[in-house]
């Protein structure tokens, strides 16, 4: 095949010359900025003029500017979208770990109850047991199991810290309004920031209502019809008769926050202020 040699528009012989971003296949300049490579730089402005790509140096820089701006904008948007997927994995893993830690802590509590009069329940008790010196082969197994529980709970804590740190990067407005963990859950339930930004407020309001995660959260959230946003203080802390309105107002503003995060990324504190005001209105006077 000799087709490859036709690529060089200058016809000055392909192969030997180094490849600048402005040479190569039919893809656009921005794509070549993103995908191209070279081991060493060269006098690209001069080569581009020589090859006929640009009329002169200032024409070259004008084209370079357009291509780099386009490439940087596209690549940044793509990478940010990828970041929201990392968040989705992290928050799901965190919930899995919490759930397993709690399940196993129950097993530990039941086992410990058969051996010690002072046995208690929960992850905290498992952590306490994990630090004991076993003095029988049975205790060895029990303490080892408790150590696994503590390890799972530690990992969940690490993931929570990661989510708290990363969510404001991916979705600054949503994180500020919902809190980073709830924001990450909403992104996760929707399947990504892009998908969340496309949902109507009514859907955001009930996201997670049907999810198995909710079973786990039910302890704090007696009214599943509101979805995970029920865990937000603005819903939970509003008196029952007004909770529907509070949930609607919250979902409305969260939807706007998700769209701003997805399409501009700029932090807009006035959104939080508007929500604060609206909730105060709904709660109307009960705070007095």
């Amino acid at each position: 095949m000799t087709d490859d040699t036709d690529r060089d528009p200058g016809g000055s012989g392909a192969g030997a010359a180094p490849n600048g971003w402005f040479e190569g296949d039919a893809a656009g300049g921005a794509d070549r900025i993103r995908e191209g490579r070279a081991d060493a730089p060269a006098d690209w402005p001069a080569l581009a003029v020589e090859s006929g790509f640009a009329d002169d140096e200032s024409d070259y820089y004008a084209r370079l500017r357009e291509a780099t701006i386009g490439a940087a904008r596209e690549a940044a948007a793509e990478r940010e979208r990828a970041d929201d997927q990392q968040l989705v994995h992290a928050v799901r893993a965190m919930d899995d770990l919490d759930q397993r830690a709690n399940e196993l802590a129950e097993r530990v509590a039941e086992w410990a109850g058969s051996r010690y009069p002072d046995a208690a329940t929960g992850v905290d008790y498992a952590r306490e047991l994990a630090g004991r010196d076993p003095d029988s082969t049975v205790d060895e197994r029990l303490v080892s199991l408790a150590q696994r529980v503590a390890g799972l709970a530690d990992e969940a804590d690490e993931l929570r810290a990661f989510v708290e740190r990363e969510t404001p990067e991916v979705a600054p407005n949503l994180a500020a309004m919902a809190g980073p963990v709830l924001a990450a859950r909403l992104i996760s339930l929707a399947g990504g920031l892009d998908a969340l930004a496309k949902k109507p407020a009514g859907t955001v309001q009930v996201l997670g209502a049907e999810d198995s995660l909710f079973a786990h959260l039910r302890g704090h959230a007696p009214s599943p019809k509101h979805g995970v946003i029920f865990t937000h203080e603005y819903v939970r802390g509003t008196r029952p008769g007004k909770r529907g309105s509070a949930a609607r107002a919250l979902a409305g503003k969260l939807t706007i926050a998700a769209r701003v995060d997805r399409y501009s990324g700029e932090r807009k504190p006035e959104l939080d202020a508007e929500l604060d005001e609206r909730i105060a209105q709904i709660r109307g006077g009960e705070a007095e």
Binding site: P18, N19, G20, W21, R32, I33, G36, R37, A38, D39, A40, P41, A42, D43, W44, P45, Y61, A62, L64, R65, T68, I69, A71, A72, A75, A76, R79
Partner: peptide, 23 residues
Amino acid sequence: RNLFPLLKDARKPETYAHVVESD
């Protein structure tokens, strides 16, 4: 007019040596 942004890792110059000029 003269600022060219590049979303690249500075540890991998081979990913922008086809854009940044020599010297």
